[in-house]
Deep mutational scan, measured.
Amino acid sequence: WVQCTKPECRKWRQLTKEIQLTPQIAKTYRCGMKPNTAIKPETSDHCSLPED
């Protein structure tokens, strides 16, 4: 599990088994990010989705 770092969101998201949760990902994670590439989402507001 990882928490969105966006102050107005802070929702918890479940990561897939393939993703290694590192301190860097935990510090920078935003809803919809692909942690294995550290690319921020380009599409709609993933923070608007219900918490996992």
Rank of each mutant, 00 (worst) to 15 (best):
W1V: 04
W1G: 06
W1Y: 14
V2K: 00
V2D: 04
V2L: 03
V2N: 08
V2R: 00
Q3F: 00
Q3R: 08
C4H: 01
C4D: 05
C4N: 02
T5L: 00
T5N: 01
T5F: 00
K6L: 12
K6N: 10
K6T: 10
P7W: 05
P7R: 04
P7N: 14
P7G: 06
P7T: 08
E8R: 06
E8D: 15
E8I: 00
C9I: 00
C9Y: 02
R10H: 05
R10T: 04
K11Y: 00
K11I: 07
K11W: 01
K11V: 02
K11L: 05
W12V: 01
W12M: 06
W12K: 02
R13E: 14
R13D: 03
R13C: 14
Q14W: 04
L15C: 06
T16A: 14
T16H: 10
T16L: 00
T16M: 04
K17G: 13
K17R: 10
K17M: 08
K17P: 14
E18C: 05
E18Y: 02
E18Q: 00
E18R: 03
E18P: 08
I19F: 15
I19N: 13
Q20K: 14
Q20R: 05
Q20W: 10
Q20D: 05
L21V: 05
L21D: 00
L21G: 03
T22K: 00
T22N: 06
T22E: 06
P23M: 00
P23Y: 00
P23V: 01
P23W: 00
P23G: 05
Q24A: 12
Q24D: 14
Q24P: 01
A26I: 14
A26Y: 08
A26H: 07
A26K: 15
K27E: 10
K27R: 11
K27D: 07
K27W: 02
K27N: 04
T28A: 07
T28N: 13
T28L: 04
T28V: 08
Y29M: 02
R30H: 13
R30I: 08
R30V: 15
C31K: 01
C31M: 01
C31P: 05
G32H: 08
G32T: 01
G32L: 01
M33Y: 15
M33Q: 13
M33T: 09
P35T: 08
P35W: 12
P35C: 14
N36I: 10
N36K: 10
N36F: 09
T37R: 10
T37S: 11
T37W: 09
A38V: 12
A38T: 13
A38F: 12
A38I: 14
I39G: 14
I39R: 09
I39A: 13
K40F: 10
K40P: 12
P41W: 04
P41G: 14
E42C: 07
E42M: 09
T43F: 11
T43W: 09
T43V: 09
T43Q: 13
T43A: 14
T43N: 09
S44H: 12
S44K: 13
D45L: 09
D45I: 07
H46D: 13
H46N: 15
H46W: 14
H46M: 15
H46P: 10
C47Y: 09
C47I: 07
S48N: 11
S48Q: 06
S48V: 09
S48Y: 11
L49V: 14
L49E: 15
L49H: 09
P50Y: 09
P50I: 04
E51S: 11
E51L: 07
E51K: 12
D52S: 09
D52W: 03
D52F: 04
